[in-house]
Structures are given as C-alpha cells and as structure tokens.
Amino acid sequence: MKKFIAIFFGVATVGVFIWTAVFLYQKSQQKPVVYETQQPFVTDIVVKTVATGKIIPRKEVEVKSQVSGVVETIYVEAGQPIAKDALIAKIQIIPNMERLVAAESRVETARLRLDNANTELARQKSLFADQLIPEFEFNKYQYDFNLQKEELDAAENALAIVREGASQKAGKISNQVKATLQGLILDIPVKEGTFVTETNTFNAGTTIATVANMEDMIFEGTVDESEVGKISEGMDLLLNIGAMEKEPFVAKLEYISPQGVDDQGTIKFEIRAAVTLRKDHFLRAGYSATADIVLDRADQVLAINERLLLVENGKTYVEVETAPQEFERREVVTGLSDGINIEIVSGIAKDARLKVR
C-alpha cells in the first residue's frame, strides 16, 4: 500500500511539472500581431478657419435728451418697432437757476435797448419828415430799431427754452425725445421719474433709448494673424449661432481691419460680414456666433486619414496590403488636407487596403 502511494505521488509530481513547463512555454510565446486595415474613400476636403464674434445691427443709435430734467412720460417700450421722428419720451424741465437768471436778464436788457431805439427812431422820423436829415441817416436808426427788435425776439425764445424747453418762434420742443432712426427699440435704460442730463460739448448726456435697424445685421468678429492673409473681401461665411442650432446663416465678408490688436499676446484682426437674413428666423442683437471661412476645398476626391501616412526623407508613403497581413510600402502624391483627412492624388487605387499603425 505504501509502495502504491509513493508511486501515485511520484506520477502526480511529474505530471504537475510537465503541465507547468507547457503552460510557461505557451505564455512565453508572443501572439502574432494582427494589423487593422482601411480603404481610401471619396469625400469633400474643406480647409477653413474659424472666427469668433457676435451678431449686431449695422445701424444702432443711442437717443439722448437735449435738456436736463426728470423723465415725465415714456411712450414706448423695448421690442417695439418705431418710425423716425416718433415720440419716445417727454422730459419735465427743471430750469438751471443760473441760466434762468441770465436768460431773464438778457430779455430785460434787450427790451430796454428796443425802447431806446424806438424812441430815437420816432425822433429821427420827425426830423426826416421835415427834411432836416437825409434818408441814409434815417435808415441807420431804422436798422438799429429792427436789430434791437430781433435781439428781443431771440432773448425771449432763449428764455422760453430754458423755462419750458420750447422755442416760441421755431415751434420746436426740445424736451420731447424723438427717434432719430427707423427700427426697433432695443432698450430703454431709464424709467419715469429718472433724472437725466442734457447732451452738450462736455457731457454725452443720458441715454433715453437705444434704437437699431434690425433688417440690416452684420457679423463682427476677429481672426488670428496666421489666417488673415488667407482671406479676402467677398468670401462667403457660414455663421453658427449658439442660440440657434439649426441651419447656419450665410454672410459675405466685406471688411478686414488693416491693423491688428493684441489679445492676450495674440494679434487679432477685426472682420465684418453682411448677414443674409431669413424670414423664418429672427436674429437678436448680441447673439454670439462663430464663422466658418472656407479657404480652399476639393469636392469628391479620393482621400485617407492622415494617420495612415509615413513621411521619410521628404517623401510620403503608405503601407498597402498585398496578402493577408503582408504589406509593402508605396509612395503617394497628396493634395489638400483639412487636418484629419488628406487628398490622394496618385499612388494607390480606391480598393487598396492600407495598414493602420
């Protein structure tokens, strides 16, 4: 029995040793590498650059008040279309005391001068009637009287404008804010009761409303200095608007800035393109957009993925499968590339299978 057990354990030990040796041998053997292959394909190769920017109206104006005071009434609201010269708001004038006193003093001075000129004219008219002075002498007093009368009218108009914002002579009302452009009201930054300042040579004045022509929109963006030399006026742009994920808008490049600006260490050039509007979509001012500018294209050409290429000594090669998992190197002539796919001008056929490295 002991002899049988010894023989059993001996045979088992030899079996385990043989199994271990076979297992280690199989593990040490490398599996053959199986390379994937790809075929050339026909596609469109488009080389383009991207410009970032926004959609804005070509004509956008800020309507300001001509007088200082308090907003009494606002007749319109944002988003409402408006015609040129239509009333936007009315300003309640709070007269500047210094200007008011000066205007009243000017009126009183002009009235005194007119009274004096009138008295002198009456005296000279009597002398002229008695033929004691010549006509040209009388005409000087008549001219002075007319001049002082005109001065009084001007002073009274100036006083009326200071007090009421209206000219008595011209009939113009300066405290009424009117649209200077036909279009759409984008914003009204003031409310009734807000104090506003007038527009003058020292102050831009308070903006009452922003009006823009929304039927004439442009794309305004920037391109990198490395790409600006490849574009020119008249090129077509495809605008991808973030807020509108459907079909892109078309625009035509109409301006490239002759001077670049430094943007965080990179020189950028401003571009502007006229947007072709569509009736089924309303473009809002300020939409962010990216513009694809087509620099070059090749339609329906034979192409491969660029990663299949080998470049050595200035020549370009691909590895073509001649038998299962057997490849030979062939030189090819390449054309246009979009950074992912590249055009194959000659060197391989459409049905060739290429090694993927």
Score class of each variant (00 low, 15 high):
Met1Ala: 10
Lys2Cys: 02
Phe4Glu: 10
Phe9Asn: 07
Val11Ile: 15
Ile18Arg: 00
Lys27His: 11
Ser28Cys: 03
Val33Asn: 00
Tyr35Asp: 08
Phe41Val: 09
Thr43Cys: 01
Asp44His: 04
Asp44Val: 08
Lys48Arg: 14
Thr49Tyr: 06
Ile55His: 01
Arg58Trp: 02
Glu62Ala: 15
Val71Ser: 03
Lys84Val: 15
Ala86Leu: 06
Ala89Met: 05
Ile93Pro: 00
Ile93Glu: 01
Leu100His: 00
Ala102Cys: 05
Asn116Ser: 14
Ala122Ser: 08
Gln124Leu: 11
Gln124Tyr: 09
Leu127Arg: 02
Asn139Val: 12
Gln142His: 11
Glu150Val: 12
Ala158Ser: 06
Arg163Gly: 05
Ala166Met: 05
Lys172Met: 14
Ile173Tyr: 06
Ser174Ile: 11
Asp187Ala: 14
Asn203Arg: 09
Asn203Val: 12
Thr206Gln: 02
Ala212Phe: 04
Glu215Tyr: 13
Val223Asn: 02
Asp224Phe: 13
Glu225Phe: 15
Lys230Phe: 13
Leu237Phe: 10
Leu239Thr: 02
Glu247Phe: 08
Glu254Lys: 12
Pro258Glu: 05
Arg272Cys: 04
Thr276Val: 11
Arg278Thr: 14
Arg278Phe: 13
Phe282Tyr: 10
Gly286Met: 04
Asp292Leu: 05
Arg297Lys: 15
Arg307Lys: 13
Val311Asp: 01
Thr316Asp: 06
Glu321Phe: 14
Glu321Trp: 12
Thr322Ala: 06
Ala323Asn: 13
Pro324Thr: 09
Phe327Tyr: 06
Arg329Ile: 08
Arg330Gln: 13
Glu331Asp: 04
Gly335Asp: 10
Leu336Thr: 01
Asn341Met: 03
Ile344Lys: 04
Ala352Pro: 12
